[in-house]
Every structure is written in structure tokens, then in C-alpha cells.
Design a protein around this nucleic acid. Structure first.
Lengths: 192, 192
DNA sequence: TTGTATACTTACCTACTAGTAAGTATACTC
DNA sequence: GAGTATACTTACTAGTAGGTAAGTATACAA
């Protein structure tokens, strides 16, 4: 197989497994068995587990930025659509049984993450928060969203809610996430 | 040492370690070294790790119920005080460096928890949600708290927020939790 | 045709995991 | 004082973890 193909296949399997098992629960054995190779083959591409973990988070950042830019250019002046797009991210993970949005999982594993992974996951949180702040400011300006306090703090509170709801949904029932999203839109007084 | 003393000491160390490392990250070796005994001594009290985990969650439930009943009898008609009491629970965990409220951690480890632990942690979530629902209903009736929709759904959204904020705070900066709580009180239009 | 880089496999290592069976010192009971 | 239950320790097992050194089949280049 082509080098880039194998490397990407490893990252794809890693992404799936981290959503299910977390970083600590993920093992080279899991990956190599799914890929049909030996564990040393994974070490060939990612010498240490920290290399694999960092590459995974950095890929998540790239994917998020593409998604955000895509939605921004498509619905840049429609904050409600953008908020819908943002809340669709955790949903896409929950939709698969037993899986969860990885940001919460990584936070829960903070004491086991290599420094580079921890820093990258913080960066992703920051990017999400900045995007949501922009969305909220647009919504407030257009009088489509209503909230007290500054947009930045409201964004942080909403992100916490999404992260918590994603975890609760995956450990209890998936419906919880939808209930929380409904409440979120009610709180912002969004007519749908 | 007395049997009950040792058993309780094991549970206390377990509680600390789970806040830091989660259930999966916790090992009999960690516990036995802290306690100054051999790992087989832990197995004497808790034959399987599932026994230890279940005992831990059940202890959490008892402690929560005592705390809730204490606050209810002290501030039963003061919903804002009760809400302050509820938000103080995650804070008490975050205050120790690198630690977090264990409910989020356990949800993140859902695929590694023995069935009994998963069920018990769901029960604790349910108890928290029911208490918060009561608090919100009292607050609404006394016109001290304002929100749209039904109290039960609002409680679920707030619990998600607290759980997410607790994880974000422990993986980023502790201040995040305080920022989110400030926003929560703003959203409910509570004058403080 | 030979040489070389690539993409692995084979075989191994050390450390740690939960868990167990058998032995032992102490304390209490009859 | 003898017997017994308690609260452990000693010594071990099988399985898994991440990681490594050395070997090999294939493809491509000179």
C-alpha cells in the first residue's frame, strides 16, 4: 500500500477508536488488527503513541477549520444556520452507538495526554469558542439571538453545555443531546 | 487495622485517584502503595475491580443524598442558596489541581465501566437532575429564576453545562468554571 | 543487473494490569 | 492453652501495554 494511504488509514481508525475508547483505551494492537498488519507497522508511521495522538488532534483541527470556513462562506450572515452547524458536530459523533465527541473524552484524560496533545486540544477548544462568539455576536446584532452578558462568556457556557451533553448522551440515552439543544434554542429565544 | 477502617481508607484513596485518573487509570498498585500494603490486601476487601468501582459510586450517591438533604432542610425555601449549593459540588473537585468532578470522567469511560457502575452513575445523574428540577421550579414560582420551557429540560441543560465546565476547567484553567457559573446566574436573571 | 530505499514482519523486551492460591502473624473464643 | 477467624503477605499467573532491533520482500533507479 502507498505510504500516505496507510498513514491516513491508521489515522482514520485512530479517530474511530478514540471516540469509542479514548486515548488511553486506544492501543496499537487494536489499530493493527483492524488494519490487518502487525503492531510494529504502526510504530513505523508513528514511533511513539504521542506522535499518533498529536497527529490525530491536529487532523481534527484541520477538519474543523475546513468545516467552519465552509459554513461561514455559505451562511456567513445567517447566525442561526451557523449555530445549527456547530451543534451538528457533537451530534455526528453521538449518532454512532457508544461513541462521543472526543473533546470531552480528551479533557477527562488530561493527566494521560502528552503535552502536545493537551495543547492542541486546548487550541481546538479556543477555535470553537471564538467561532461561537462570532455567531452569537451576529445573532445579537440581527436580534435573532438574545442573551445577557458578553458573547465570549455565553459562548464558553454553551460549549460547556454541548461538551457535557455529548458525554451524558453517550453514557445515557442519545435523546439527551436533542433535549439540551432544544433548551439551548429556547434560551436564546430562537424561533424555529 | 480495623476492618472497617481499612475498607474506608481504600475507598477514600479510590475516590481521590478516580478524580485524578478515572476508573480505568486507577490501579490496585496505586492504592496499595498509598496505603502501605500489598496489592492482594485490596483484593481481600474488593475481590474484583468492579466491586471497588461499584462501592465507590454507591458511596458517592450516599454522600450526595446527605448533602442534598442537609441543604434542603437548611435552605428548603431559598432556591438561590440551593443552586449555589449544587454548583459548589463540581467546584470542590476542581479546587484540587488536575482533578475533576468524577461524573464526567465516568461518562467518558462508559465503555470500560462494569454494568453496575454504569447503572449507579446514571442513578446519580438522575438524582442530581431531579433535585435541580425542584430547585428551578421553586425559583420560578418565587420569581427568583427565569427560564423558558419546562424545568426538567432546563435542569438537564444546566447539568450538562456543569459537567462540561468541570471538565474544561480541569483541562484548561480552573477559572473557566467560575465564568460559566457567572453566565448561568445571568441567564436565570438572578440578582446577586 | 546491482544497489538502495520503502514498507513492512518477526521476535523480542520491560513494565504493568487484574487476579489467585497458599501461607502466616495476630487476636479473640472456648 | 488450643482452636479459629481475621487481616493480611508472599509468590505467582496470564494477558496487555508501548516500544525496539534486526530481518525481508518489493519496487524502483542507475
Amino acid at each position: 500500500m502507498n505510504k500516505q494511504d496507510t498513514r491516513q488509514a491508521i489515522l482514520d481508525i485512530t479517530a474511530e477508536l478514540i471516540q469509542e475508547l479514548g486515548y488511553k483505551g486506544l492501543s496499537y494492537k487494536h489499530i493493527s488488527e483492524r488494519l490487518g498488519v502487525k503492531n510494529a507497522a504502526i510504530h513505523y508511521y508513528f514511533p511513539a503513541k504521542a506522535d499518533l495522538g498529536s497527529a490525530y488532534v491536529e487532523q481534527m483541527i484541520v477538519q474543523f477549520e475546513q468545516y467552519r470556513d465552509h459554513l461561514n462562506s455559505k451562511y456567513g450572515d445567517q447566525p442561526v444556520r451557523l449555530l445549527n452547524g456547530l451543534t451538528a458536530i457533537p451530534r455526528s459523533f453521538i449518532s454512532k452507538q457508544g461513541m462521543s465527541c472526543p473533546l470531552g473524552t480528551l479533557d477527562a484524560e488530561r493527566n494521560f495526554l502528552p503535552e502536545s496533545m493537551l495543547l492542541a486540544s486546548r487550541q481546538l477548544s479556543r477555535l470553537l469558542c471564538e467561532w461561537l462568539t462570532e455567531i452569537l455576536e451576529k445573532g445579537q446584532k440581527q436580534q435573532l439571538m438574545h442573551f445577557s452578558g458578553v458573547a465570549n462568556n455565553k459562548a464558553l457556557a454553551i460549549l460547556s453545555m454541548l461538551q457535557g451533553a455529548s458525554l451524558m448522551a453517550s453514557a445515557n440515552q442519545a435523546q439527551i443531546y436533542e433535549d439540551v439543544i432544544e433548551q439551548l434554542f429556547l434560551d436564546l429565544a430562537i424561533k424555529s
